[in-house]
């Protein structure tokens, strides 16, 4: 039986006021299950990233609700939300947002440091995760010395080090070449996706659709279709 990780009901989000008001997401309801790799796809401006932000506790909706394992996300305080994101959600941003002044290992260790775990223990655990993504030898280098693919893997290691049960990736292959992108998503599917974890990916890169369990198609802020992916959970 499928266990629901994220349940979104009647989500609406608009930006601006009056005549300048733009409806980004309209009446979207969606269930995301553990053990699946869900893609949110659609053209630019279709509301994918806005939806992803709302279901991951980043952006407050104007209407509707989001529950993570039954816990209403948007009734929580800002600090409560921050704590939830830190402990349960791993983020991989489109531009990676790695700190150029820190070493690769220190970048990976950030979620643990934010959890107030000891510095040295966090770095040691970061080395373990760097090994998992094949970058142990790059641990002491700053991220700017790494290739795009390597930086993406560092970002993934950072997202995974806190062992989140929800992994959120925003356009993970946007700045990677075709092979590297496929390898990254393949790695996520084979190494990181487990029955206790869900992976939500926003993308419009058709080259990686084959790894999806389900694909949510969006247009003009609405879900226009949900299809089973080539790789069903």
């Amino acid at each position: 039986m499928k266990r629901i990780a994220i349940q979104a009901l009647g989500l609406q989000k608009w930006f601006g006021d009056g005549e300048a008001r733009t409806l980004a997401v309209q009446d979207v309801s969606l269930d995301v299950n553990f053990g699946e790799m869900l893609y949110i796809v659609g053209p630019s401006g279709s509301g994918k990233t806005t939806l992803l932000s709302m279901i991951s506790g980043i952006l407050r909706p104007n209407a509707g609700s989001v529950a993570i394992e039954g816990c209403d996300l948007w009734s929580m305080s800002n600090d409560g939300l921050a704590e939830l994101r830190l402990n349960r959600i791993g983020f991989v941003f489109q531009d990676f947002h790695l700190f150029p002044r820190l070493t690769t290992a220190e970048n990976v260790a950030i979620p643990l440091i934010l959890r107030h775990e000891p510095w040295q223990a966090s770095i040691e655990k970061a080395l373990v995760y760097l090994k998992k993504v094949g970058l142990e030898s790059r641990a002491d280098l700053p991220p700017v010395k790494l290739s795009g693919g390597e930086q993406q893997r560092v970002a993934i290691a950072r997202a995974m080090i806190g062992t989140p049960d929800i992994l959120v990736l925003d356009e993970p292959t946007a700045s990677l070449d075709g092979d590297t992108g496929r390898n990254i998503v393949s790695f996520i599917k084979n190494e990181l996706l487990t029955p206790q974890r869900t992976v939500v990916i926003v993308t419009h890169d058709a080259r990686i659709y084959e790894f999806a369990s389900r694909v949510v198609n969006m247009e003009d802020g609405r879900i226009v279709g949900i299809s089973e992916g080539a790789s069903r959970a």
């Binding site: 980043i58 800002n78 600090d79 921050a82 704590e83 939830l84 994101r85 830190l86 402990n87 959600i89 983020f91 941003f93 947002h97 950030i110 979620p111 934010l114 950072r158």
Partner: peptide
């Protein structure tokens, strides 16, 4: 901003 998104409190 990234730190905030990851879960750092204000």
């Amino acid at each position: 901003g990234a730190l905030k998104a990851i879960g750092m409190k204000g």
